[in-house]
Design a protein around this nucleic acid. Structure first.
Length: 802
RNA sequence: GCGCCUGUGGCGGAAUUGGCAGACGCGCCAGACUUAGGAUCUGGUGUCCCCGACGUGAAGGUUCAAGUCCUUUCAGGCGCACCA
């Protein structure tokens, strides 16, 4: 019978399900292994071919671990709150719950048809009240510990989604999701103090097996910098504190700058001689959108505060005071000392407004022409007691001088801002707090969780961006859990990142009604051993969930300080034209069509063979066919199988090498070369025209994690009625992977002149002798002087002649 | 602007520590089988002035030996982007 995948793919999916083959028990003698992929957002578009790239990769790891005797947890769930569903619901006047259910059903069908070894009994859904009860519970714990606070502050307002965004969601001044312009608005928002964890989020990366790229991106995002705060006395008598990482250049400060929003400007207002000008500048700066601020970054603007000067604490010099929006109110102290000779931004500003430029670090060209910013070498000049020191010596010297005089201190700053946690949207977790005139913000008691979403008719946000929940007036009115008086519920909901910040914990014990997960399950399964997901989540989901997990660790809920031990990332699958797949480009490949035509196994095999796992690569229907053909060749091998239950003399070494290669390559996520090795092996089998039963079964076992259905089907006729998926992973004998005779290359002056078969054990000397005895080499060397002979045993000999 | 990554046949891509460049697959060419082939099997396939030489974006360098290490440079991608 031919390779008719439609006959058996569903059959095996059903068998695995019936036998509970992939159910993970929180018990037993086996070591545990928790493999996890980022759970999908069930969009209306259905599964993208990019999803299975990640899922197949970890399915291979999960299946291999099972065969190696681990108790494996490989779960799946739905990150189902969020804007696309809500927007679809608004447009089509359907409840987002219905839309979500429909989308999940479709995703589930598609994932099941691909034969992943997920434990479907542990499926979670972030929009299920039994799930978000615990999302709310965690929020209440954060609130209780002072890590959630409400603040009126300028937020990133997406004009398209009509919703506040976190800094992480604003990309190039526009909304990450819809691409609409983002403007600044003042709004009262719930905030989470992720900044409190900034240092730990950096430090604890050291012990984790994350790919370097992820570590650096997280570190850069958190943006730690070491510097000093220095106090400048203003002529008004006020203190102006600036933050600098280059306090060594203090003698080169020629002016100081406040951000336009800085409160000190208001404080000294009466002393300003040009209030109209200053006022106009502040007005203009506040109107700039995030987009304008980034796009127009190069052109410096500003206004002087006439009538006011600042005193340089190092030399008593009187310096002009300016305001400019190149100084950010949100970073450091919102005020800087400007050293145009050694900072490019200050240089540009000084040039534009004709402010003096004074060199204090020698080593550059002309600082009147270009700022010299090199920290590595350079000696201080014109700098009082620092003169003659290197930059590296001068920084600590200046800090101790400032600290001694009480004029400044060492200071560490982070770029990371607190997390804007409020969304003025319907399809999210309600924030379980009420506002009481008497008691302020009060937490709901745990017994009232989950606080479910009220049923309302329309889900649009109000024109001014108020939450759709504002319409649920009956729901809003409640009593204060504290004093019993009248109170109102919070109408903002949580961002999509809330539910995904802890879902790995719920997988450990998904049906627990007493806790987010039982402590026994948490102890047993924590942490996630291997987590694969996209690079786009490095500064959002990955950072947020590490923060929540650390908090839960601090309050004794979880047993480990980090959630994920190992993090890898897959590259994107592009369209055949090498562009990102999108409906508008018309280059989308639908997994349903692929499976229908070539089957799940061919789809999985191709996605693993397509290229280096961590690199993006274009889809190719021809390549897919090639993998289908490979599976067909494996299938047709069944007619060449002999009864022998041992490896044949011809293939014994090949089999041991193959087991080693495939196993090692899977671990390194080099799936493409593992599959290539199996292709080579079957090419050999075909050449010989026969294969023993033992050889065939080993091949099927190695291939099973990649193409589980067809290998089960083929194994059925040789097996003992048990599933191949639960068999033992084959072992190899290191000795038997070594060849007795090996080919070495003989070069003369680096050019290959001959290839020799010699026995593997030869020493360096013996290898040399064998090489020099070759006729071809004798010929090539004739009439020349042998200067040197280099021999690498087992590899090559290079004869150097003159 | 800063940081990181990638450049290898017609194409996707191989090449632990510097040690046979182009594994494996696609495509292409030829042969076998066939009424037929967009099926299957077998063989071939980097380039050229083809018993030899040249070849890993470009130019230098280190080395007996460089896709791999160093310097400069070009192209593409990703991240951050006035963070003092």
């Amino acid at each position: 019978m031919g390779y008719d995948f439609k006959r058996f793919e569903k059959k095996w999916q059903d068998k695995w399900e019936e036998q509970g083959a992939f159910h993970a028990e929180t018990a037993g003698d086996k070591p545990k292994y928790f493999a996890m992929i980022e759970f999908p957002y069930p969009s209306g578009a259905g599964l993208h071919v990019g999803h299975p790239r990640s899922y197949t990769a970890l399915d291979i790891i999960a299946r291999k671990r099972r065969m190696e005797g681990y108790n494996v947890l490989y779960p799946i769930g739905w990150d189902a709150f969020g804007l696309p569903t809500e927007n679809y619901a608004i447009k089509n006047k359907i409840h987002p719950k219905i839309v979500t259910e429909k989308n999940i059903a479709n995703f589930k069908r598609q994932l099941k048809m691909l034969g992943f070894s997920f434990d479907w009994t542990r499926e979670v859904n972030t929009t299920d009240p039994e799930y978000y009860k615990w999302t709310q519970w965690i929020f209440l714990k954060l609130f209780e510990h002072g890590l959630a606070y409400k603040q009126e502050m300028p937020i990133n307002w997406c004009t398209g989604c009509k919703v506040g965004l976190s800094n992480e969601e604003v990309v190039n001044g526009v909304c990450e999701r819809c691409g609409s312009e983002v403007v600044q608005r003042r709004k009262s928002q719930w905030m989470l103090r992720i900044t409190e964890y900034a240092q730990r989020l950096i430090d604890d990366l050291d012990d984790l097996d994350f790919i370097e790229k992820v570590k650096t991106q997280q570190k850069n995002w958190i943006g730690r910098s070491e510097g000093a705060e220095v106090t400048f006395k203003l002529s008004t008598g006020d203190d102006m504190v600036v933050y600098t990482t280059r306090c060594d250049t203090l003698f080169g400060a020629t002016y100081v700058v406040l951000s336009p929003e800085h409160e000190l400007v208001d404080k000294v207002w009466d002393s300003i001689e040009n209030p109209e000008e200053v006022s106009a500048y502040r007005e203009a700066a506040s109107k700039k959108s995030e987009f304008e601020r980034t796009e127009l970054a190069k052109d410096k603007t500003g206004a002087p505060l006439k009538g006011i000067y600042a005193v340089n604490p190092a030399n008593g010099e009187k310096l002009p005071v300016w305001i400019s929006d190149y100084v950010l109110v949100t970073y450091g102290t919102g005020a800087i000392m400007a050293v145009p000779a050694h900072d490019t931004r200050d240089f540009e500003f000084a040039k534009k407004f004709g402010l003096p430029i004074r060199e204090v670090v020698a080593g550059g060209e002309n600082v009147q022409e270009e700022a010299y910013t090199n920290v590595a070498d350079g000696t201080l000049v014109n700098s009082g007691f620092l003169t003659g020191m290197t930059v590296k010596e001068a920084i600590p010297a200046m800090i101790s001088w400032l600290e001694e005089k009480g004029l400044g201190k060492k200071k560490v700053n982070f770029k990371l801002r607190d997390w804007v946690f409020s969304r003025q949207r319907y399809w999210g977790e309600p924030i379980p707090l009420v506002y009481c005139e008497k008691c302020g913000w009060v937490a709901l008691p745990e017994s009232e969780l989950p606080l479910t979403l009220p049923e309302i008719d329309t889900f649009e946000p109000g024109e001014n961006g108020e939450s759709p929940l504002k319409k649920a007036t009956d729901w809003i009115k409640t009593t204060c859990p504290h004093c019993g008086g009248p109170a109102e519920r919070e109408t903002d909901t949580m961002p999509q990142w809330a539910g995904s910040s802890w879902y790995f914990l719920r997988y450990m014990d998904p049906h627990n009604s007493e806790a987010l997960a039982g402590s026994e399950a948490l102890r047993y399964w924590s942490p996630v051993d291997w987590y694969n997901g996209g690079m786009e989540h490095t500064t959002l989901h990955l950072l947020y969930s590490r923060f929540w997990h650390k908090f839960l660790y601090d309050i004794g809920v979880v047993p480990t300080k980090e959630p994920y031990m190992k993090r890898t990332s897959h590259g994107m699958i592009l369209g055949e034209n090498n562009e990102k797949m999108s409906k508008s480009r018309g280059n989308v490949v639908n997994p349903d069509d692929v499976v229908n035509e070539f089957g799940a196994d061919a789809f999985r095999t191709y996605e693993m063979f397509i290229g280096a796992f961590d690199q993006s690569t274009p889809w190719s229907n021809q390549g897919l066919k090639g993998c289908y053909k490979f599976l067909e060749r494996v299938w047709n091998l069944k007619d060449m199988v002999t009864d022998e239950n041992t490896y044949s003399a011809d293939f014994e070494k090949l089999m041991h090498k193959l087991i080693k290669k495939v196993g090692e390559d899977f671990e390194r996520m080099k799936f493409n070369t593992a599959i290539a090795a199996m292709m080579s092996a079957i090419n050999e089998f075909y050449k010989k025209g026969s294969v023993t039963k033992a050889e065939f079964i080993t091949l099927l076992t190695l291939l099973n994690p990649v193409a589980p259905h067809m290998t089960e089907e083929l194994y059925e006729s040789y097996g003992d009625g048990k599933l191949l998926s639960l068999k033992k992973w084959p072992e190899y004998d290191e000795e038997k992977t070594k060849d007795d005779e090996i080919e070495i290359v003989v070069q003369v002056n680096g050019k290959i002149k001959d290839k020799l078969m010699i026995s593997a054990g030869l020493s360096q000397e013996e290898t040399k002798e064998a090489a020099l005895a070759s006729d071809k080499i004798k010929q090539a060397v004739e009439g020349k002087t042998v200067v040197k002979v280099i021999a690498v045993p087992g590899k090559l000999v290079n004869v150097v002649v003159k």
